[in-house]
Each structure stands twice: as C-alpha cells, then as structure tokens.
Design a protein around this nucleic acid. Sequence first.
DNA 1: AGCACGCCGACT
DNA 2: GTCGGCGTGCTC
Length: 726
Amino acid sequence: MSCIVEIALSCPLRQTFDYLSDDPAENWQIGMRASVSFGSRQLIGIVVAIKPIAEKAVDKLKKIDQQIDKQSFLPNEIMQLVQWVSRYYHHPVGECFQTALPKRLRLGDPDEMQTETYWILHQQPDSTSKTGKKQQQILDLLEDYPEGLSEKALRVQLGNVKSSLSALVQQNVVAARQYVALPVPCLELQQQVLLNNQQKQSIETILGSKGQFSTFLLQGITGSGKTEVYIETCREFVENQQQVLVLIPEIGLTTQFVERFRQSLNASIVVINSSVSDSDRKQAWLLARAGKADIIIGTRSAVFTPMINPGLIIIDEEHDSSYKQQDGLRYHARNVALMRAKSLNIPIVLGSATPSLETLYQVKQQRYQFLELTERAGGASLPKVALLAAQNSSENNGLSSSLINAIEKHIKQNHQVLLFINRRGFAPVLMCHQCHWQANCRSCDAKMVVHQHQNRLFCHHCGLIQILPKICPECGNTELKSYGVGTEKIEQALTAIFKDVPVLRIDRDSTQRVNSFANMVKQINQGQAAILVGTQMLAKGHDFHDVTLVGVVDADQALFSADFRATESLAQLITQVTGRAGRGKKAGEVLIQTEQPEHPFWQNLLQHGYESVADNLLSERIQMELPPHGFWAVWRAEAKEKDLAIELLQQVSGLLQQSNSSVLILGPVPALMEKRAGRYRAQLLMRSADRGALHQLIDQHIDSVTKLKLARKARWSIDIDPTELI
DNA sequence: AGCACGCCGACT
DNA sequence: GTCGGCGTGCTC
C-alpha cells in the first residue's frame, strides 16, 4: 500500500508539496527527510504529513526518490516549534526548516553520530613480557576507566600513544571499541567558587521553578557573577539528567565563557557557533538530540537544537542585537526560546547587565520574575565615571588634552588603558580642500572611509574598496583632507604621543587573521602598560584585568541619531564599558568625551544609572507609541531601480487598507539610507494594540502580495517585531 | 529562489 | 546563420 507524503521544501513558495510513496504509511513518520525531484532539481525536504491516497489528481504527483531517514529524525517538539515560527514570522515553512537544521543534515547527511576509538583493558599483561614506560602509563590510566578511555584523551595526557597501543594490542592486553565521539572533558575541574547571598538566592529561585514555565530576568552588573549563577544552576539540572540550552551572542569571543563551564562542570558540553565546523555542528546537534550532550552552548540558530530531556534555557546578554536575524527568516532567538520554554513547560533565564527595554517592559507587567545581582565579586568597587568636554579635541586627532593627561597618569602607574571609538578605519570623510568634492560610495548613500594602513577607501555598508586617491578626481587638486576619527587615527596619534608604550588596535580589520585576536589577548594579559584602541567588539565578553582607565571617544553620535534605538544602545554600551575598568584590586576610572556634557542623557546615566535611563526611555516609547509598546510589523522592499520598492509597498498598503482593521498603516517611506549596495530600499509600517489583528491582516493579504507583478521585480520581506525601524 | 522556455541583437 | 540577453511562468 502506497501513500501520499506532504513535504516542506526550501523554496520561497508559501506551501508544501504532495508526493507519492510506494512505501506504506507505516514506514513514514512526520519529521523525516526525503529526497525529491522538484521542477528540474533535486531537493531534500521534511515530511510534514502522511496521508492516504485520495482519488483526486494522484496522476499529477511525482514519486519520492528516496527516504533518507529510516527512523524518526526531527522530534515532534521541533516540528511544532518550526511550524509555529513559520506562522508567527509569516515565512515559508520550508525555509524555516532550512534555518533550523545544521547544514550537513539539511544536505542529507545520514543522522549518524561520529564515533571514535576507545581503549579498554582486556586482560592483565603476561608477567613474562616486558612493558615499556609509555605502555605502563597507558595501562595505569586505563585501570581507572573500566568503561574505556578515548584515544583522543590518551593522546591529550600522554602524547603520541599509537605505537605503544599497537604493541599492547599484539600482547592482547588492551582492546579497541568504537563509541560515539563526545567532547573532550576538562581534565582538572576547578573548585566550586563561593557564592554570595544574591547569587544563592537567584539560583534557588530559578530551581524553584524546575519543571514549569517561568521567565526570569537576571540583571547583574559586569563582574557580579552572572556566569556563576548560570553554572551552578546548570549543575543542578545536569545532576538530574536534564539538558540545558545556553544561548550566547554572536561575537567571536565565547572561549572564556565556554571554558568556565567546562572547568566547573563534570558534564558533556557542546558548542555551536560560527567557529565550529559543519561536521562538528552536526555532531553537537545529534549529541543533543540523543541526550549525550548535557549542555548546549550556541548562538542564535542553536535555539532550534533538539533535546531529549530539556530542563532549562539560558539567554546570556539577552539585550544583544545578534539574537535577531536580519535577513531571510527574521526571527528573534529570544522570542523563539521563550515560546519553546513555554511549550516545554520549563524555566528560562534572561541574563544581562543592561536588559533590553522589551524585557524590562515585561518585568514591569509582572510577566517575568526579576532577579538582581548588585555586588561585584571580590568586593571590587565600580569605577568613577566622569564626562570630559570634547573642546579642542579635533586639534589632537580627536583626543582632548584632559583625556591624554589621564592616559599618561595611568600609564605611568604601569596600568592599561582601553579606548573606544566606534568606527573602524582612519577617518570617515575624505574631501578636496579646493572644490569640496567628497569620496562617496557609488552603490550606497554613504561616505567612503579612509583606511590609511591599507591605502584604501572602504564603504562600511557594501564593502566597496578603492585605492586611496592622491589627487582630487574632480579638480585635480593634490590637497585631499580627511576629517573625523576612527580607530586607526587614534592608534596613530597615541603611538606618536606615548612612544614607549605599545598601542594595540583591536577591530575587525586588525583581528581578521586567524589567531591574531587570541595573540593580542595573550599579549594584553601579560599585564604591562599598554593602550588598547578598539571598537565595540572590545566591550563584550572579555576581561582585561590590568585595565584601570576606560575612555569613550566618540560617544555623541548616538545622541543625534535618527534611529530611536541609538540612545538605548549607547546607554547599554557605556554601562558595559564601565564594567571593564578596574576589576580586582585596582581602582578604575571611566572618562567619556562628549561635546554635550550637559545633555540630560549623560546626567541621568551618570547620576542614576542604566535602570533610570531605561525607565525614562521606556516611558518615552510608550508615550510616542513606539516598540516595545504595541505590536509592530514592517514590510521591507528593495530594488535596483529607484522608486520601484516604494511603488510595490504603495500597492501593499493599498491591499492592506481594503480591510477594515484596527491596524494602523504608516508609510511607505524610503529607508533612512535609501540606497545601499546598489539597491533602493523602502518600508511600510504596521502597528496595532492587538497582536492577533496584526497577524490576521498579514495573513489575509500575503498571498495577493506574492501575486503582484511588482513583487517579482523588487525583493520584499516581512519583519515581525522589528528591532530596526529606520 | 532557481530554472527552463522563449523571443530579439552582435558575433565565431 | 548561432550565442546569449533577461522577461515570464512554474515548481506536487
């Protein structure tokens, strides 16, 4: 008896496809993969339904080419989750499955875990045969592991063991077994750290919600020991054979975080981030699904990792913008995680020193429980924060004389200094002194940034690269001048001022080479006086113990930005940065150089702290009916031809207006930077106090939008709960 | 989105 | 005479 199998395929069509299978329905399960011919190509899809043969139009159906999985592949929970994501974000279901699966499995790799060789003691060595030193070491070690020890672990401890092992095999003393390859455990676990009362209380409260859905905001200033709270909470779950999913931001600096878990917990910990190879991702995913990974630490897409016995979800730095995907399926991992925790009926912890307004809003509505850590570990005090008027700073390449003096003071004490400039390159503007020509990007509405080290102009929006011109292309003048500051210029200025002090620049340009970042960190941690100049990437995730002065050079930009979220991010950045100064015994100092020291934002932040700023911003947003107040969706469109995007959105707007709905339609308007990477962009906003009404309106019209002629000429997408409104 | 089919311009 | 440009139409 054959059957019909309904398959979700990765294509932008908002539908699934029926195929004919020769196998009986019993041989199929929802969530299995199948290979089918689709149009003229071969695709792999996910089975979403199995149906009996119906009379109608069976002859139109193609046959399934291959059933890839013989046993269940995607657990029901993940099937439900991905289908919910597809409905909630109004994104084609096949593409949702695509984002949820590791590449190798998406492409049809069998779902078999990699194995590795384990060695076990087979019998006691014959007393007559002589055993070498290395061989004896192996035997001694294996004696402690009656269930065997992996060859990898033997190698880690004893070095090259290949020849000794084969000798032992010859004597029939040891035997090899193939077992599933687990992550290499830490050899020496660290002693459990002493927790303060706030930490203990937080852990207890979270554990009190074991086995039931409950959301916690764990707010703790930098250095207050959030990670210890995570680790000790995990310990409890791991001891109960329950798995923990830990989401982390997408910054390449996760090693320290992961190491602390590894060194503290006797558990199988897998990592899924961008530096993990495709085959290791697949292995981590399979280990998690099989319950052989106790803790899964990963970035955004790890939220879809299946677990056999999930107990807890943790989202570290929950305010981080990398949790929201900004193309394709525009999901927010925090949102998906919340949904997942709810349907699994397990607790979820959102951790941050500077929670997002969304999360604070929920705390205010008493939907999340608030946990707070206010004490810094080791009794370190928070640094003094002061504002510096930026007057005359342009004469010193963007550094005011008081900032330079402060740097000198800290350097003289053999301490380290950290300076933030949130712009890569040398200078953001190149201009002709004579005719006022400016170096602009030809594909974007943006200026080209001077990168002197590489003797090039870069567009930071589309990646266009040009040779740095020596003469003005308009009038031939040789007097080209650059304006503004970037990391390179600050680096150069400081090198000139402090001749004997190493100046390290840390940004995407200087850390691109493999290991260069790790090497820099190593150098920094040697503890000699040094000045570190860098972008935001320095603010996150890394502890530099000898830094006593943190300077913020171009803090003002955000205060004038048209993006209403800029002040929120600035308050978060300054607060995070403040935590970077003076850990341990050395007293810290933070200096913020600004053109507007009188600005109420600074006064509020310095006198009352992040929470107060966040509070104000939140009331402001509520008053102005901006997110997180109300429910928002935005249609985005882009086209190579000018005005095409906006025309398409005008038609979309027309369709939406046909319904008599409570949803407010705003726009369409061109994007703030209309042209980017050669495309003109526009957006159409929807807002409602009623989430259901918003989604209903989209569902009502999305098919007609797909059928619009213009929808083929312009790229369009829909963004639910947008985090960027421009 | 891919990919095929289809109908008009400059080239071995 | 052909190669190839991208318009439009379909994908169980």
